[in-house]
Nucleic acid binder design. Structure first.
Lengths: 230, 230
DNA sequence: GTTTTTATGAACACAGTGTTCGATATCGAA
DNA sequence: TTCGATATCGAACACTGTGTTCATAAAAAC
């Protein structure tokens, strides 16, 4: 299970730099941070930093990757635990809000007011690729929907991220369950109108959790091509 | 009507710098631009730049202000021309898409993929303040709506901007009228669900165009306080 | 204990920022 | 046209941050 390969010094150094970056983002905002700031805060040598990351963007990105891995593992654990039973659906948005609540300091740094736009674009692309496959499924073998699914998905993801950042930037005044409910109130009628058909909650959840691998691959293809940040 | 006060040299220099900035944004993206780039492109002395603007943010902001003024004047002209008749409502979103189409090069630089996040935050705040007053009006003397109007407005503005940037970044494949229709399909059911009541299109438009002054004042108060960009 | 890997810190060239100031060119108005 | 006002110029300046190099020291792996 555990990867023993990694040198302790490497983990230690990276951990120090990540923690430094996170605390600095909360303090002064991502854009204003210099590599020098990170060096001072983490107390590591200049050359050490560049031995690990090309720039501060890459450092932040690897924090995001860590968070994404955590979330996906948690999702798979939930699916696995319920898989044998009769309720394979997972409330994706609720789980996302819960995960955000659990790691709100990290999310605040990554998706909050103080974060950079770079990482929000990645998040958008990630969620877009996660949802575009199920959405295509929803309108398969039907007349063309009132709104093209690319547009619907694009706007839907923006709404979710907008709600998420609002929640984080306003000190999370409501529990994840309430935020999930708000999202449903705002978005469910939109989905029906945009796809031109009724969509059962369970059907939607099933589609989203059925195709995670494919969507994640799609995400990675963009990620690797560097299609996200030109 | 015309302001004769301004020295020709000032207008000329500012125009040169604005054009330089716009073309550079389209070419390499806002974040990557340096003051030096602007100086070279506009063929203007270094000290001249700083005599006009504190930094490149302020230069971009003044482009945005120009665009906003144009839009508001156009809005007022439309209201005035129809004012005496029986149809005082103005389709705010449609006009916004039309204006964007007319000045798409400027909007592309300011709100497109290549622009900075700074200006998008301003745009968000501007539209938020433009809509929050009519939204408060819609739920006045009623039970508290299913979703707080702050959240609804926040998400609604994000959706509009998301749609707008999608349109610009995908080379405007549809006419403004179609984009307006798409926005209505996506957002009208959301508005009704979030406010907990039917909202007539004409009522909504009337409210938005009735309170422009107050909303703009609200916007300015934030703008002047610097509440937008810390 | 030896070998391999990693961290260090100082030095370096480089690019960009924002300011200053005297000289010059251009403007608007009389 | 002239003249006072003012905008631009350009070169110099100190400053901050970047990204690389390299010899040395420390720590891990074997």
């Amino acid at each position: 299970m555990k990867e023993k390969k990694e040198d302790r010094r490497i983990s230690r150094t990276r951990k120090l730099m990540h923690e430094a970056l996170m605390s600095l983002i909360v303090e002064k905002g991502y854009e204003a941070i210099t590599v020098q700031d990170i060096l001072d805060r983490a107390d590591v040598g200049r050359s050490t930093f560049y031995a690990h990351y090309r720039d501060k963007d890459e450092l932040l990105l690897s924090s995001f990757e860590h968070l994404r891995t955590l979330f996906e593992q948690q999702q798979q654990a939930i699916v696995a635990s319920r898989g044998s039973g009769r309720e394979p659906e997972v409330n994706f948005v609720l789980e996302l809000f819960r995960h955000t609540g659990q790691h709100h300091k990290l999310y605040q740094a990554i998706a909050g007011k103080q974060s950079g736009e770079m990482i929000l674009k990645y998040l958008h692309k990630y969620l877009y690729n996660l949802l575009i496959v199920p959405h295509a499924e929803l309108v398969r073998n039907r007349n063309s929907p009132p709104v093209p699914i690319e547009i619907t998905t694009h706007v839907l993801v923006s709404s979710l991220l907008s709600l998420m950042t609002w929640w984080l930037d306003n000190h999370m005044p409501h529990p994840p369950e309430k935020m999930d409910e708000i999202f449903r109130i705002l978005v469910t009628p939109t989905i029906e109108a945009a796809f031109g058909r009724k969509v059962m909650k369970s059907e939607y959840e099933r589609l989203v959790s059925e195709h995670p691998k494919g969507s994640i691959m799609a995400f990675y293809s963009h990620y690797i091509d560097g299609g996200c940040c030109p």
